[in-house]
């Protein structure tokens, strides 16, 4: 029962950590930390209009967006790892990242301008389309056998990636724009992007958490889960749908940021949390925090030059995989 007490402390603890992170991250700018910037969150009366813009229209939305995106990706990753009963699954397994990249390519190449949300809109639509394609290809009768889904995801992913490469080749001079997009990052994040991601989270997080018990049952295998009363195919459908929306919205606003969705749920499991009722919200909070700090690092370390945050998260993956290797070597 002491585990339960520990858990009771951890939730508020994490929440405090999150708020604290936002507070601290707000102070990082111009390559250094200034506590006055952090404190400005409480009182901003002494700021000049320029400073106000910088702090509340550029920096704060970026800090919050990085948190929301990191949370969405980790939440999606945790849920997918549960559905597929496979810890190596990441949120892009349904070809979403390639689809989104293709959308961005099309937007940039076509030069169509529908307002500031042109690229996110195209990316989001193509991401959803690729997920839809994967569902369709992965369906056998009325069921969604997992191996088939995975194969379909890989296939669709490769196909769209090939198209992206083609687009990049044809683009020639526009190449650099696409490269930045596929590396993932939070430049130019504003409250608009936050508003694009938030609705999906507000709906997605509770919905996914509500499937916790089913996800727990999935751990025993689909057959046992079904014998326990889980409507396996229905659950799969809903989970995949919600996760697709969540991940597509995240990728649409910030490009393809790797590893967060894969690594964070494992970190949570390392803490001894396997019950999805806690694994999911923890993954969300921890993932948000991780990406928040990764981005803070990305925009501070070489300031004023910005590093794409995807580079930092990819570096995260290395020690993680080393750890996984060690673990498997001990327990083959």
């Amino acid at each position: 029962m002491s585990i339960k007490n520990k858990k009771r402390l951890i939730y508020p603890g994490l929440l405090i950590l999150v708020l604290g992170s936002i507070f601290l991250a707000q102070g990082f700018g111009g390559g250094r930390y200034q506590i006055s910037d952090s404190l400005s969150l409480f009182s901003s009366s002494t700021l000049s209009p320029s400073e106000r813009i910088i702090l509340f229209e550029i920096r704060l939305p970026r800090v919050i967006l990085s948190f929301l995106v990191g949370g969405s990706l980790s939440l999606g990753g945790a849920a997918l790892q549960g559905v597929f009963q496979n810890p190596l699954v990441d949120p892009y397994v349904l070809g979403i990242s390639s689809g989104a990249a293709l959308g961005a390519v099309i937007a940039i190449l076509s030069g169509v301008y529908l307002g500031f949300f042109t690229i996110p809109l195209f990316a989001f639509s193509m991401a959803l389309f690729s997920a839809f394609l994967v569902f369709h290809l992965g369906k056998v009768g009325k069921k969604f056998p997992l191996e088939v889904l995975l194969l379909a995801g890989i296939g669709v992913g490769f196909f769209f990636s090939a198209l992206v490469s083609l687009g990049m080749f044809l683009a020639g001079e526009d190449l650099h724009q696409l490269i930045f997009w596929t590396m993932g990052g939070f430049w130019n994040s504003s409250w608009r992007e936050v508003k694009m991601v938030l609705p999906f989270l507000i709906v997605g997080l509770p919905v996914l958490v509500s499937f916790s018990r089913e996800l727990n049952a999935f751990l025993l295998g689909e057959k046992v889960a079904e014998s326990l009363g889980v409507e396996v195919e229905k659950v799969k459908k809903w989970l995949l749908l919600v996760v697709s929306l969540l991940v597509a919205s995240a990728v649409a606003v910030s490009g393809v940021i790797g590893f967060v969705g894969l690594v964070v749920p494992h970190l949570v499991r390392l803490l001894g949390i396997r019950d999805h009722r806690h694994l999911l919200p923890f993954s969300f909070l921890l993932g948000g925090g991780v990406l928040l700090w990764a981005d803070t690092l990305a925009r501070t370390i070489l300031n004023p030059v910005e590093l794409p945050v995807g580079i930092i998260t990819n570096l995260l993956g290395v020690p993680f995989f080393i750890y996984l290797l060690q673990k498997r070597k001990k327990n083959p």
Binding site: G29, S50, I54, I58, R59, W187, N188, V305
Partner: peptide, 8 residues
Amino acid sequence: TVDLEEFV
């Protein structure tokens, strides 16, 4: 590449 903040 520079930060939007820096630009402002």
